[in-house]
């Protein structure tokens, strides 16, 4: 046993030293030569402006070399920012607030969605919902641990509905329980899957409707562009150029005049989704991202950060004990537009 220890302990110590030395030298690489922009999800309509900025040379016009990388279920842009794998990223408000509460040195630069695209799909001929009170007795799909669970619990609390009065059903990516009618309401991104699933159900002769928590008084911010405090303080010019390029691209993307070109561009990256679906998704995305839902009035304010909505999101998370104490999120909102 002793001889094993004699060999093992120096080996483990050497391993620690190698990792420590590697970790110390890890962030020595020159930053911002090649900017990495990590999205929240796979390429789809929710990243139309990001794709457009890349394809149509908006970053290059600002003298920046930017690689736009898709996200995914196991990707977390904030963690990548801290680890130095990315310089800018897209994260949801709950991710941002959670990260800030744990000391992550990040700032919010712009708010991509003015209204959260998360809604619940239901069949109006089988499930009547005129007001939130009608949720009583319904089976509602939620992703336990996801922001839809947070939103639904906030909504139930706001409208004095006890959680025992509804059935919360654990959902994943498979829609079968909703198709089979085992679940009355299913969480869905209004501008993305909702169009695909909605069309499929309509083609099968079913009626569909959407329950929007925002209309029921719940404001919960969705995707925003984030970076680290260090990058913002050390490279303010680069951050400004990046955001100018990105927001200009998003404005062009949401301009109804560019509709067909946008559909073509998004389809190059999201080739599994037919163009007619992308066309429909684009219309809904415009309503959710452009301030006032109207390009003529709100187009130039694209990316506007809504501090009141952020405060409300923080309050919801605090009420549900998802963060231990207030983080004063308004101190981390640094609009660059």
């Amino acid at each position: 046993m002793l001889s094993i220890h004699k060999k093992t302990i120096p080996a483990v110590m050497a391993l620690y030293l190698i990792i420590f030395a590697g970790a110390c030298g890890y962030r020595e690489k020159p930053p911002l030569d090649n900017i990495i922009y990590r999205l929240k999800w796979l390429f789809n309509i929710s990243s139309a402006g990001d794709i457009w900025a890349d394809v149509h040379g908006h970053f290059l016009k600002q003298g920046l070399t930017v690689t736009v990388k898709p996200g995914g279920p196991e990707r977390d842009a904030i963690k990548e920012l801290e680890l130095g794998h990315a310089h800018f990223g897209v994260a949801s408000a709950d991710q941002v607030i959670r990260a800030v509460s744990k000391g992550a040195p990040i700032v919010v630069l712009a708010q991509l969605f003015q209204s959260n695209p998360l809604q619940w799909i239901y069949r109006p001929d089988k499930t009547q919902i005129e007001s939130p009170k009608d949720l009583k007795g319904k089976i509602i799909g939620v992703t336990f641990g996801g922001n839809d669970e947070t939103i639904m619990r906030a909504l139930l609390a706001k409208h004095d509905i006890d959680e025992t009065e509804v059935g919360l059903f654990s959902v994943r990516y498979d829609y079968t329980p909703f198709y089979q009618g085992d679940v009355d309401l299913w969480p869905i991104y209004r501008n993305a899957q909702a169009v695909i699933i909605g069309n499929r159900l309509r083609n099968a002769g079913e009626q569909i409707a959407f329950f929007n928590p925002h209309e029921a008084g719940i404001t919960f911010v969705a995707n925003s562009v984030v970076t680290t405090q260090k990058i913002l303080s050390e490279h303010p010019e680069t951050v400004k150029k990046f955001m100018d390029a990105l927001l200009a691209a998003w404005r062009e993307t949401m301009d109804p005049a560019n509709k067909e070109k946008v559909v073509e561009t998004v389809h190059q990256f999201d080739w599994d989704t037919p163009k007619e679906i992308i066309r429909e998704q684009l219309e809904i995305t415009r309503d959710l991202t452009v301030p006032f839902g109207d390009f003529a009035r709100g187009g130039e304010f694209f990316g506007k950060i809504d501090p009141i909505a952020w405060k409300e999101t923080e309050k919801i998370m605090l009420d549900q004990k998802l963060i231990p104490q207030p983080v004063n999120i308004e101190n981390y909102l640094t609009p660059v537009y």
Binding site: V12, I19, K79, E82, L83
Partner: peptide, 26 residues
């Protein structure tokens, strides 16, 4: 326990060496 402790020590080592927040590594 040796394997687990080694893994967790490596994580903490990386956390403190890179000064990472509790969001990345608790």
């Amino acid at each position: 326990l040796i394997v687990y402790a080694t893994g967790i020590c490596i994580l903490f080592l990386i956390k403190f060496a890179l000064n990472l927040s509790d969001y990345v590594i608790p």
